[in-house]
Design a protein around this nucleic acid. Structure first.
Length: 604
RNA sequence: GGUCCCGUGGUGUAGCGGCCUAACACGCCUCCCUGUCAAGGAGGAGAUCGGCAGUUCGAAUCUGCUCGGGAUCGCCA
């Protein structure tokens, strides 16, 4: 070993001992005769002093050191002179008095400082990810990620789960997302596809009698990126045999509580209570989304009844066409100026609304009961009499000084718009503690959704979820009424994972495929292997897929999962460090029987 | 595919028609300095303002296109 101690370890109990450390020069403070080096490794920072009276040779070497050089230093741990202690580092009471220094490697001046404070452009960070990852913050994030996966392994192992790896080179089973594909050399013109998730494989493993499977699995989807989406993401994939919905939920709830409390300790307030459970319908009614942020209230209220007799075309047209008017109350936002209300309206429009109506309630009012014409503002004021506003306020529990926001449109649009506004305002108005973690279950999803454009039924989640027994009768007569044993884990307004009890009866599985409109040969091509396995004794089973990147990012208080992925891609799915994707040689193409047919290069 | 924000020395920002021969902080280089820890002091190097085209007497600054980054809608079983 080049070292017998890590930089962050020595403390006053080591005073007098001789140690050897190795690491990176974080900073040099050269006083001419006395040189201080902050030596950094993943455990922390150690101050090293070079005194010419101790070793003039080491001192000479030290005077040439630069940032990020890699050095090995031997010396004595000594107590710092009084008054020179540094509380901000773990080794602040002592320092290493260097006798000997050995330069292991020099370094170019790095493109940016290795520091937690600085805010560097993402592309530069990724192009120099090896330096970016040296930052203590990044080291902590990856230590956290490791800890989470270790807790997963421990917890699930204790519950008799077996970790099984499934192939990355598989087959295209187009179910929604675009596949990443890999050409086959041995089979001309054929392609593997990278799995969007190990869904079919884990179900087949249940047929194989594995009973309880999990995998920290890479999943690939060739879709556009977001802060919380990468082309390859990691999923905690698990599946259990002979279980009902509650069994899976109970297990995952235990796991997530365990991890969250071990990571966050007392900061995790939900550890002693059950996760909130909301039916899909309830969630849509109250929050307009199937992934509500439950750290704050501000629920959606339907007010169509109150507004059905106004003279306003905005409202009447919508109501006549079967739409609804729903609203939310932004507490203490009644003083919003034009700029701020415009911002809300823009947000509503970008969410697909034709507009957003606000009613601002005056602050200088003791009670809504005494509301007069002077006490509220609204662009639709001439249609909103005092009595209507009073009634609205009462129905919506709005108080003086609040801002009522109303959206009128088809129900699903109203829900989308208001839930986006709700999330926006929740953050803007500081309605919750940003560090809080609030898990919830949303369950009882419909199995199918009607796709208006394609005029056909689509699987609301995925095609393998089991219809509820009591709804089996609707399967052919009224697919929209069929609910499934399907459940999502949500946290702070994000979907953390999705699970279901699966269909294990090949005949029901085929019915479901038929409703979605898959043809027989298509079914055989995509799902033949699964259906075949089902005909050899499939146990009832169910499981979940849970986004690991999102979970770790949430625990760390990060919004972008790039922060918890060692080598992520940019929004255009490129890696600036490796410069991938990239061309391959003509020889490689030839071997794969591939000839390119590229769009014309734009004329320069 | 759409919308929005951003692109100025190595890094982060300022400048937003002529005061710009581009400013500031950090970093970098040289020298001085025995207790600093965002060390200090003195001096110095380094960007033609993402690219292209246009408007203008004059463009970092205005316009268009384009490239790149980010956010988001679509998309993501």
């Amino acid at each position: 070993m080049y070292k017998n101690k890590n930089c962050g370890e020595p403390n006053s109990s080591h005073i007098g001992s001789k140690i050897t450390v190795a690491g990176w020069v974080n900073r040099r403070r050269d006083h001419g005769n006395l040189i201080f080096i902050d030596l950094r490794d993943k455990t922390g920072i150690l101050q090293v002093v070079f005194n010419p009276e101790v070793s003039s040779k080491a001192h000479d070497t030290a005077s040439n050191l630069r940032s990020e050089w890699v050095v090995q230093i031997t010396g004595d741990i000594v107590k710092r002179i009084s008054g020179a202690e540094n509380q901000s580092i773990s080794t602040g009471s002592i320092e290493l008095q260097a006798n000997e220094i050995n330069i292991l490697n020099k370094s170019e001046t790095p493109p940016f400082e290795i520091s937690d404070e600085i805010d560097v452009d993402d592309q530069t960070r990724l192009a120099y990810r090896f330096i970016d990852l040296r930052r203590p913050k990044m080291q902590k994030l990856f230590a956290l990620r490791h800890k989470v996966t270790k807790l997963i392994w421990n917890y699930l192992s204790d519950k008799d789960f077996t970790h099984i790896e499934t192939p990355i080179l598989l087959k295209s089973t187009p179910e929604g997302a675009r596949d990443y594909v890999v050409p086959s050399r041995i089979h001309a013109g054929k392609f593997y596809a990278l799995p969007q998730s190990p869904q079919q494989l884990k179900q087949i493993l249940m047929v194989s009698g594995v009973d309880r499977y999990f995998q920290i699995a890479r999943c690939f989807r060739d879709e556009d990126l977001r802060a919380d989406r990468q082309p390859e993401h990691t999923q905690l994939d698990l599946e259990m045999s002979f279980v009902h919905q509650d069994d899976v939920m109970f297990l995952v709830e235990g796991l997530y509580k365990d991890i969250t409390s071990q990571i966050l300790g007392d900061k995790y307030k939900q550890s002693d209570t059950d996760f909130i459970r909301l039916s899909y319908q309830d969630s849509m009614d109250r929050f307009g989304t199937d992934k509500p942020d439950l750290r704050f209230g501000m629920e959606l209220i339907t007010v169509s009844e109150i507004l059905k007799n106004t003279e306003s075309n905005v409202f009447n047209n919508v109501l006549n066409q079967g739409g609804v008017i729903r609203g939310i109350v932004a507490p203490k936002a009644g003083n919003y100026d034009r700029k701020k209300t415009d911002e809300l309206i823009d947000l509503a429009k970008s969410s697909g609304a034709s507009g957003l109506v606000y009613v601002a309630l005056d602050d200088n009012l003791d009670s809504i009961k005494n509301l007069t014409d002077h006490n509220y503002k609204s662009p639709l004021k001439k249609f909103l009499s005092t009595s209507i506003v009073k009634e609205l306020s009462e129905k919506m529990s709005a108080k003086p000084g609040d801002l009522i926001l109303l959206a009128a449109d088809k129900e699903n649009k109203v829900n989308t718009v208001l839930s986006n506004i709700r999330n926006f305002l929740g953050e803007k108005l500081n309605l919750y503690d940003e560090e809080e973690i609030m898990f919830a279950w949303v369950y009882d999803f419909p199995l199918f959704e009607w796709d208006e454009d394609m005029k056909k039924w689509e699987p609301a989640h995925h095609v393998f979820s089991s219809p509820k027994k009591e709804h089996l009768g609707y399967l052919e007569s009224n697919p929209g009424k069929v609910h499934a044993d399907l459940f999502d884990l949500v946290c702070n307004g994000m979907e953390m994972g999705s699970g279901s009890i699966r269909i294990h009866d090949p005949s029901i599985q085929k019915k479901v495929f038929n409703i979605i409109g898959y043809k027989e040969d298509e079914i055989n091509d995509r799902f033949g292997q699964l259906i075949k396995s089902f005909s050899y004794g499939a146990p009832p089973h169910g499981g979940m897929g849970l986004g690991l990147d999102r979970f770790v990012a949430t625990l760390a208080g990060e919004k972008a999962i790039r922060e918890v992925i060692a080598f992520p891609k940019t929004q255009s799915a490129q890696d600036p460090l490796f410069d991938s994707p990239n061309k391959i040689s003509d020889d490689q193409l030839e071997e794969l029987f591939i000839s390119l047919d590229l769009p014309d290069e734009p004329q320069v």
